[in-house]
Nucleic acid binder design. Structure first.
Lengths: 195, 195
DNA sequence: CGTCTATTTGAATGTACTCAAAAGCGGTGG
DNA sequence: CCACCGCTTTTGAGTACATTCAAATAGACG
């Protein structure tokens, strides 16, 4: 199991001794997804919290009119799950789909509860994850209100370096909240600017 | 001290015995603000988590170009604070200002730590607050991307019933992410619709 | 009452969308 | 290996949504 990346990710917020580390690793499951395969479908209960080892996922939501809205991407070293559904074990609002062949390490809600019980450090990890997620989201709201599509595109490039070459433009457009056609014309204008 | 509303708010997520309740209340401070007075200025460290007993606050952010963006309103029974600044004791990103004469009950970061130590119930309260805040925010992001200004205005009216009569239109416009002029013309069209 | 700020109104402009059609590209089967 | 199919991306014209700027009107407060 390719456990190095996830341990490194943990190390950013908490410190574990070898026993705790092993216990944590023993609770993980590995899963491989093909391009286009779903890790979670809207409506299902989100039973796992997943860490992307390789590949890339997209988290999206289908509005009543039937069009898709991408909420976030999760390339290597990102966590992906429907936070609300995982926390409350309610029906998921979002779907999570692989946009490349992807390998994840996931921990079930049950095992996470075990972990929280036995290794109190993980309370902190969890709290920080919520906190970080909230703060990041709050800034995104603010930025969406503040900036025009071309600025949001630049912010996307900063947030996800290199990802624009791995993700379909229609998905980037959806993430930015513009139509694929408009993103295309934005890119054209941007190209011309450089001459 | 008008402690009934805040106890009712707590009761929505946790149950306290009389001793815990008294301990909690002993950690609160009362503060009265005049219209236009600031509870927090951007750049300061947010040392308190405040609960609005009466009146109304607005949480807003000043962009580099100097224009204000309202992030949320906090009328009676809402909590208001800069979550990031309070958690990390870093400089606040947001300002919090009274838009009516307002009365708040606030708890300092220090006292909150005490509380978390002595009454573990509050871990849950805190986690739920983050969780709820996150989920609400996530939906707002999605809605902002999905819907037009007039729909966002309706959502505002649902979220904050009756508040449109207490808040300046320029602040509502800012919250919705449109210009005051456009909100004004939206309302005119809406009026005409009813004939 | 006068001053200051908020709101309304209108015209001109810009930003982003819809619809339609053409071109590009990737995967699949022959 | 190539041809074809389906989906994505590009391009363009016309339109709708929202902004800017300017000026007039209305309200709030001392």
């Amino acid at each position: 199991m390719p456990s190095q990346p996830i341990l490194q990710n943990l190390a950013e917020s908490i410190r574990l001794d070898p026993v705790e580390t092993d216990f944590f690793l023993s609770l993980l499951q590995e899963q491989k997804l093909r391009r286009r395969e779903y890790l979670l479908q809207a409506g299902e209960v989100c039973r796992y919290q997943s860490f992307v080892v390789s590949g890339c996922l997209k988290v999206s939501y289908l509005d009543p009119a039937g069009s898709e809205h991408v909420v976030k991407f999760a390339p290597e070293n990102w966590w992906a799950f429907d936070l609300e559904s995982f926390a409350l074990q309610s029906g998921a609002f979002y779907s999570i789909q692989a946009i490349e062949d992807t390998e994840v390490l996931k921990i079930s809600r049950t095992n996470m509860d075990l972990l929280l019980d036995r290794v109190p450090q993980f309370e902190k990890f969890n709290r920080l994850m919520y906190q970080t997620a909230y703060i990041a989201l709050q800034r995104r709201v603010t930025q969406n209100l503040t900036s025009k599509a071309d600025e949001r595109y630049q912010q996307f490039q900063v947030k996800y370096p290199g990802l624009q070459n791995r993700v379909a433009q229609k998905d980037i457009a959806s993430y930015l909240g513009v139509t694929p056609e408009f993103l295309s014309s934005m890119r054209r204008r941007e190209m011309l600017m450089h001459f």
